[in-house]
């Protein structure tokens, strides 16, 4: 089970500006995290994360990540995350949010250890809520 209270900082990444708004809104509704950053470019987020590493800052607690994005896809993003220092990404949780119907995407994404869930679009409060529920709850 994921402790919702341990999550302060949330980053939502989606190249589709509408989905970005929808996803951020859902995060707000579910009441996860105190700060929510929206970003339409996974590349920009990677740059930001690397700056945090250099600056000795901590990683965000939760990332909502789309897969089908130009330039840096969600899967590219995950590969880059894996190359970061273990202590930096230790507490980072990633929720995939995608409209992809490619079954290969699911297994590829779930093989990354920071990924905790793979949710289909449209993201709804119920779907996101399920991530933070106990297996038995």
């Amino acid at each position: 089970m994921i402790d919702r209270d341990s999550i302060n900082e949330v980053v939502v990444i989606d190249d589709n500006s509408i989905d970005l708004i929808i996803n951020s809104k859902v995060v707000q509704l579910v009441n996860v995290g105190k700060t929510i950053f929206k970003n339409d470019s996974a590349e920009d987020v990677l740059i930001n994360l690397n700056e945090r590493i250099i600056g000795g800052l901590k990683a965000p607690d939760l990332i909502l990540l789309d897969i089908m994005m130009p330039l840096v896809t969600g899967l590219d993003f995950l590969d880059q995350i894996d190359k970061m220092p273990a202590e930096f990404i230790e507490g980072l949780k990633i929720v995939m949010v995608t409209s992809s119907l490619d079954p290969g995407d699911y297994s590829l994404a779930m093989s990354h250890k920071n990924v905790i869930a793979f949710l289909g679009k449209p993201l709804t409060p119920q779907k996101l809520e399920s991530v933070f529920l106990d297996d038995f709850g």
Partner: peptide, 24 residues
């Protein structure tokens, strides 16, 4: 087929998401 269906779904799912939000 995968790509086009994705491309077609993207705006559709957006609309569905917006409708969900719209309701509440």
């Amino acid at each position: 087929v995968y790509s086009t269906s994705h491309d077609l779904r993207v705006p559709l799912t957006s609309i569905m998401g917006l409708i969900n939000l719209f309701k509440i």
